[in-house]
């Protein structure tokens, strides 16, 4: 058994996983994503193994791994690496198709909706004019989110028409072309918190409340973490959400609506789990390794 771990930075999570691999004496390689050059045309064998400190990666080099864990911090970098590895027949956690779905809020919502998993009302528009019409029809406040992004970055609560017009113009003028895919969502009056569930396959490993005075309740934005009891309804929606996107090692963010109950807000395919581990005491790194061993079979 040999595990490959693709990483960008050794954060709290990567360090915990590496130390758990070392404690369990499991063979592993740490692969810095900045040093990879994937050779997509292995019929040409001119590339040296290493050149100016950069490693060229031929398919056979990755074949030594029974499974590869993606911990790249850049979504696009991780996604393409997984797509290449999966195309070479190498098992990965997560699979590229799962990361492609979860890393894009539009695709996540579409997958949830297709599988009848409750999530907030969401609409997509491609021009500022269409977006403004959709916002007005939905009624203020409305939440505007980038389709790709984490840590609550650029998530905006739009309270009135003037703010909507200004924000849409800024996004269309200053943003990357992906910012012109307008992802509009109803504002949910959540009770000062959301719920983060870490899942490995069908197992719920931890569940925490993330509480904040701010309406954005990401831990990266300063929210505090406390254990959350898992009732049957929460267990069901978490499992349904994981199944809808293809399953794996996932962080499922759930919000509580006064009338509809639990709604899936988003699903993260490369979870950070410091807050979850600290609040619940769950041994997440060892459970990840158990899951990797299962995935390798």
């Amino acid at each position: 058994m040999k595990i490959g771990l693709i990483y960008s930075r050794v954060r709290f999570e990567e360090k915990q996983i590496i130390e758990a691999l070392q404690r369990r004496d499991l063979a592993h390689d740490l692969i810095d994503d900045r040093e990879i050059v994937f050779n997509l045309t292995p019929q040409y064998d001119g590339a040296p193994e290493k050149y100016h400190g950069v490693k060229f990666t031929r398919p056979e080099k990755f074949q030594q791994y029974d499974v590869v864990l993606d911990r790249a911090m850049e979504f696009t970098r991780g996604l393409y690496a997984l797509q290449i590895l999966n195309s070479w027949g190498i098992k990965t956690v997560n699979r590229a198709d799962v990361v492609a779905t979860c890393g894009d809020k539009l695709l996540t919502t579409a997958a949830l909706s297709k599988h009848n998993v409750p999530s907030p009302r969401t609409e997509i528009a491609f021009t500022p004019e269409a977006a403004l019409a959709a916002i007005e029809a939905m009624g203020y406040p409305v939440v505007l989110k980038p389709i790709i992004g984490s840590w609550g970055r650029l998530v905006s609560k739009v309270n009135d028409r003037e703010a909507a017009e200004a924000l849409l113009e800024h996004k269309a003028t200053l943003g990357h072309f992906l910012h012109e895919i307008f992802y509009l969502q109803e504002y949910i009056k959540k009770p000062g918190r959301d719920i983060r569930i870490i899942m490995l396959g069908a197992e719920i490993v931890s569940a925490i409340y993330r509480s904040s005075d701010h309406w954005v309740t990401n831990t990266a934005r300063g929210a505090s973490s406390t254990p959350c009891p898992v009732d049957r309804a929460l267990e069901k929606i978490a499992r349904d959400a994981a199944n809808a996107v293809g399953g794996g090692f996932l962080a499922i963010d759930v919000i509580e609506d006064e009338t509809r109950g639990y709604l899936i807000n988003e699903i993260n395919p490369t979870p950070e789990f410091r807050g979850s581990e600290t609040a619940t005491g769950a041994d997440i790194p060892n459970k990840i390794i158990d899951y990797l061993i299962q995935a390798a079979k």
Binding site: G149, R153, H176, N268, T270
Partner: peptide, 23 residues
């Protein structure tokens, strides 16, 4: 700062956050 090497120990300014960084 990022630890860029251990033997010998080298440090460099950590990369700036990119738009698609996250979890």
């Amino acid at each position: 700062l990022e630890i860029t090497g251990i033997n010998p120990l080298t440090l460099d300014l950590a990369p700036q956050e990119e738009e698609d960084w996250g979890e």
